[in-house]
């Protein structure tokens, strides 16, 4: 059974008196553990799709079922709890809390769940080791580079072991070298923890990290196929060794 089931999804914005169709009619199923990239140009509707899947926006029509729950039917409070339990987020602009240290930032989703300080700090430290930031644990976001901040962001997204991690242009603000680092860590983590990763990007190079690429143009899925590139195959063993260094030797590449 699919983990995410998007059915006949339609979203129409009203801008002044004009109707703008952001999503026309999207049907999409994502399996558990799948790394799925939604590729599209600016204005294609890819971000709208991600927002609706994550329950941040309501669709005009259609439904999004995650693990048997129709998120489009939940109210705001239920959605918050749902996200708390099932969803992790990686943002383009990192969105770390400026007043908090790396550890506190990573531990935040656990704090929202009501996990105690000792337990969540332990989990956060473990995650920060996994993203190779053990030397930056007590630093605040302003004391870190963009790549480091995004690694904190990734640790935060995965710390609560959510079912799905959504990443919206996660490397949009990073240079090529850092992009590679960050993508390897993120994809490696998803594989290590068998988590479903939905990656939204306009960058074809980023898409190469995914198992499956869904191309969206003007609110319609125009292509949906497995990613058979050699690049993907070559990166996974590399990732495995990367994660092993971080203390997570549980390497499982497909």
């Amino acid at each position: 059974m699919s983990l995410i089931c998007v059915k006949d999804l339609r979203k129409v914005y009203r801008v002044d008196k004009e109707r703008v169709v952001a999503l026309n009619r999207i049907n999409l199923n994502v399996d558990p553990g799948e790394i799925c990239c939604i590729l599209g140009t600016s204005g294609s509707g890819k971000s709208t799709l991600l927002n609706i899947m994550a329950g941040l926006e309501k669709p005009t029509k259609g439904s999004v079922t995650i693990d048997g729950t129709d998120v489009t039917k939940l109210n705001e409070k239920q959605l918050a709890v749902f996200r708390q339990r099932n969803i992790g987020f990686v943002f383009q602009s990192y969105n770390l809390m400026p007043t908090q240290t790396a550890i506190e930032n990573v531990a935040m989703p656990l704090m929202f769940r009501g996990v105690g300080r000792t337990q969540r700090t332990r989990d956060a430290v473990e995650m920060l080791r996994a993203v190779k930031l053990e030397k930056r644990m007590m630093h605040r976001p302003t004391q870190m580079s963009g790549g480091q901040q995004q690694r904190v962001g990734i640790a935060r997204a995965f710390v609560a072991k959510p079912k799905i991690v959504f990443a919206d242009e996660p490397t949009g603000n990073l240079d090529t070298k850092t992009t590679k680092e960050v993508m390897e860590i993120m994809v490696g983590m998803a594989r290590t923890y068998h988590e479903t990763l939905i990656l939204v990007t306009h960058d074809k190079d980023i898409a190469e990290y995914a198992d499956r690429i869904v191309v969206i143009v003007d609110g319609n899925v125009v292509s949906d196929q497995a990613n058979e590139s050699i690049f993907k195959e070559s990166v996974v063993p590399g990732m495995g060794s990367h994660m092993a260094e971080g203390g997570n030797g549980d390497e499982k590449s497909s």
């Binding site: 709890v81 996200r83 708390q84 987020f89």
Partner: peptide, 13 residues
Amino acid sequence: REIGVMKVLGCVI
């Protein structure tokens, strides 16, 4: 922005 992020990360209102 912080408040929005907290909401996205599952902080109940």
